[in-house]
């Protein structure tokens, strides 16, 4: 009945394989300098200026450095079509190669922090927990759920961040977050914090359903709706209604 289907599927798969294999990574590497500048002029310069000097639409980024550029681009916060007080996390607009090219280009514009090198594997989780609780929890929460801040800002939830993005944001302090330089958190401590944040993305929920790890508010809401609901229904099952 559907005899025509297998060949069509096979044909489609072939076309997709051929088209997918058409862009060798080596080529992108070679072109990085050129296409980085090109991408910058296309997607960034309108707000940040031709040489990253900034315009009335966007802040100067000449000295933002590779870390900041990579953070903003890889979390999809940049580019944005309209100026916003705090851009939101979304799917990155560029491929990994394009981001690398753009980061290189932005880095070449001025003098900013490089992309940190991190090795969170095997870092001291306990140290990370201590540092996280003292430096991060006041905004992002002990379980990393994030919070609103004053004036339409927010401390985002940390559930989707990659280790590198966590490290970059610590080093550069995006938006309204304070930065934590080497004299405040050394590389070992940075690794520990990153490791703990990664742990918080999939923490030990030994107690069962985590209820979003929002703490007593979620627990109370669950108790007052589900718990009280079941209790009242039990009494209605046992008792009479008149």
């Amino acid at each position: 009945m559907l005899r025509w289907l297998p060949p069509v599927v096979a044909g489609l798969a072939l076309v997709m394989w051929l088209s997918g294999g058409g862009s060798p990574a080596a080529g992108a590497q070679q072109e990085s300098r050129v296409s980085g500048e090109q991408l910058y002029l296309q997607s960034c310069a309108y707000c940040h200026g031709e040489r990253g000097q900034g315009t009335h639409r966007g802040p100067p980024i000449a000295d933002a450095g590779a870390a900041n550029a990579d953070y903003q681009l890889s979390t999809g916060r940049m580019p944005i079509s309209e100026p916003a007080q705090q851009p939101q996390r979304k799917e990155p607009a560029f491929s990994e190669q394009e981001i690398a090219a753009l980061v290189d280009y932005v880095d070449s514009l001025g003098d900013g922090p490089p992309i940190p090198e991190i090795h969170p594997e095997g870092a001291d989780l306990g140290k990370g927990a201590e540092l996280y609780l003292h430096n991060c929890a006041s905004c992002h929460g002990t379980s990393g759920v994030g919070s609103v801040l004053l004036g339409h800002f927010e401390a985002p939830a940390l559930h989707d961040s990659t280790p590198l993005q966590v490290a970059e944001s610590i080093r550069v302090g995006p938006t309204t977050m304070p930065e934590f330089g080497h004299d405040v958190l050394n590389d070992e401590e940075l690794n520990a914090v990153v490791a703990y944040v990664m742990y918080l993305q999939h923490p030990k929920d030994a107690g069962g359903l985590p209820l979003g790890r929002f703490g007593p508010f979620a627990e109370g809401a669950f108790a007052l709706t589900f718990g009280v609901g079941v209790l009242v229904l039990i009494t209605r099952w046992l008792g009479k209604q008149a």
Partner: peptide, 12 residues
């Protein structure tokens, strides 16, 4: 048993 409450290990 099934719904986690007050995970003090996460609060620190």
């Amino acid at each position: 048993g099934l719904v986690q409450i007050n995970p003090v290990w996460l609060w620190g």
